[in-house]
Design a protein around this nucleic acid. Sequence first.
DNA 1: GCCGTTTTCGGCCCGACTGTTTTCAGTCG
Length: 572
Amino acid sequence: MATTLPRNADVAEQFELLADLLELEGEDAFRVLAYRRASARIRETGGPIAQLALEGQAKQLQGIGKTIEEKIVQIVEKGEVEALTRRKERIPPGVVSFMRLPGLGPKTARRIWLELGVTTLEELREAAEKQRLRTLAGLGPKSEENVLHALAAQAKAPAEGPARTLLGVALPAVLGAVEALREHPAAVEVSEAGSVRRRRETVRDLDVIATATDGSALIEHFVSLPWVMEVAAKGGTKATVVSNQGLRFDLRVVPPECYGNLLQHFTGSKQHNMALREDAVRRGLSVSEYGVTVVESGEVLTHRNEKAMYELLGYDLIPPELRENAGELEAARDGALPKLVELRDLKGDLHSHSTWSADGKSTLEEMALAARDRGYQYLAVTDHSHYLREGRMEQQDGEIEALNERLAPFRLLKGVEVNIRANGSLDVADEVLVEREWVVASLHSAFHREPTERILAAMENSHVDCIGHPTARKIGKRPPADVDTDRIVAKALETGTAFEINSQPDRLDLPDTLARVAGEAGVPIAVTSDAHRVSALAYVELGIGQARRAWLTKKQVLNTRSWAQVRKRVGA
DNA sequence: GCCGTTTTCGGCCCGACTGTTTTCAGTCG
């Protein structure tokens, strides 16, 4: 097999570190910014950046030019950007960790290193304790105190940054808060903002923006909600609370005339807003959270909603899920934004479990009724193959048939979720698979053992309809398996196999960037719940969020079709 | 280092907050 290429995440990390080191060396801030932008771009790119660089195509991407493309090739050839290797030798590793302390930036870190000769966190603590930091111009007792505080906080918390919360936890919490605020008579407009509104797979802060006839009354209502455990801050226009789940909420009450500007600003992303503002500057407009200033006249224009603001700037309204500076601004300018798939477009679910699986919590009947209540026409029952041996599959089929008679036209599909073994074979015989209406094949073990080859082999089996959670990642626990996206996409097209966006909160797999690549290539994408109980059928709301982040339209999502149409689209 | 519907050179988002300062640099989101 060909040598494996570095992953986009690894390439991005090298440029991020290079940016840090350049910053510590006092390099031009815009050069540093260029590396950070390139890093963000690479992270947001679904296809393998290393492959693109080798083909000389990486510089087609916004923010990547000839120099950075060459540096990506260096990573392929030497494992590391040469400029990074050189600087790692010059700059003590401890100094980089100074920068990671809140309140300490590159300028200060550099001076502590060069002017005081301090190169480790331990020496930094000592220097602060012995009041040596205040010998530097611009630093005083308070700075020393802050450094000691930051060091103590870091020692207490794990090495990782502040934990990110799964969207599956944050979204219902935020939507609940929004709903509770809307019920108050003083509320006019209420919306979630920030990365939750963009439906990122994990989020940090939970933002809510509102307008009100009486702002203080709304804030009072907010801090008195039953689930509020702690009020961290409360003023006339803003409050911060901590929920009984430990989530931090920020509510901002803003003037109605610039609700659009503020909602847009606080929805982000940062990269989207920066690109939007740069573009505006070129046309003599200065954009901030308070409005759009016409630079020449000084006139400030405000907007009651986002649509008016985007239109003034020459764009169609951009759905929050697309605001990542991944091509949405150009598309919105050209009137070429996709009409994104919506939750209500789903006509069925193609991955679910019941009490026939040991880990299933709801009976077939309960699952069927709940699916029908959601407005679905069908639900594929895909219990794990190993629980359906020795005649149990036939028994389950009998139960499915009986239910289907009772619940028609709603229909349970006789499916199965088979394991792709370490050698690429499936754990169910072909003569059994041929009888199943829907076959999901998934990796459940040995994730590091040639995952690409195994998925390719599974797709070669004509009975396999869909690859389940293709990267097998568990967010925050297990990294994605090293799957070659290009090759599995090509094989999916060749064999007429679908990929899944599995909506389990800790899976969301395919991830958004890969789903975009697969969808653009023409692979049908099934947004599935993988529900093991009735309540989990609702997880598809998360999956639809990822599908929208992947730019997918109704047409590209397989289970927006009737079962008959699904059958026609996938397999025989 | 990147980029271009006025530019291949000369720009590069914007405002709040903090701590150190008599007017601002650094950091953060």
